[in-house]
């Protein structure tokens, strides 16, 4: 039978696959951002799971904390860019935006 570490890793793998699927199939830029958050969370689950079952090694917690910090910065800048795109094009469908400016 599988052990606990494998169960956490499987949850991370399914979350990662759902995020990749969302990034590939969604048109709206905000939905792509949400799927990206799913991928970052799956990576964090793996970090924390390996930290616990590696004998409570806290370096994994530090890595997860930096991932959270970078996700906050990334979402702030990305939403600013998306707002500018909406201001210029009146929509945020990323497959129809092929020019840098109108």
């Amino acid at each position: 039978m599988t052990n606990e570490l494998t169960l956490y890793l499987i949850i991370g793998a399914i979350l990662f696959s759902l995020g990749v699927f969302g990034i590939i199939t969604r048109k709206n830029a905000i939905m792509v951002l949400m799927s990206m958050e799913l991928i970052l969370n799956s990576a964090n689950i793996n970090f924390i799971a390996f930290a616990k079952y590696g004998g409570m090694n806290l370096e994994g917690h530090i890595a997860a904390m930096f991932v959270i910090i970078l996700a906050a910065a990334e979402v702030a800048v990305a939403l600013a860019i998306v707002l500018n795109i909406y201001h210029n094009f009146r929509h945020v469908n990323i497959d129809e935006i092929s020019k840098m400016k109108e």
């Binding site: 830029a29 905000i30 951002l33 949400m34 958050e37 969370n41 959270i68 996700a71 906050a72 979402v75 702030a76 939403l79 998306v82 707002l83 909406y86 945020v92």
Partner: peptide
């Protein structure tokens, strides 16, 4: 995530 990023994303949904 819930206090910051999710609020930003909901604002993004409503503003765009």
């Amino acid at each position: 995530y819930i206090g910051g990023i999710l609020i930003l994303i909901i604002f993004g949904v409503m503003l765009t």
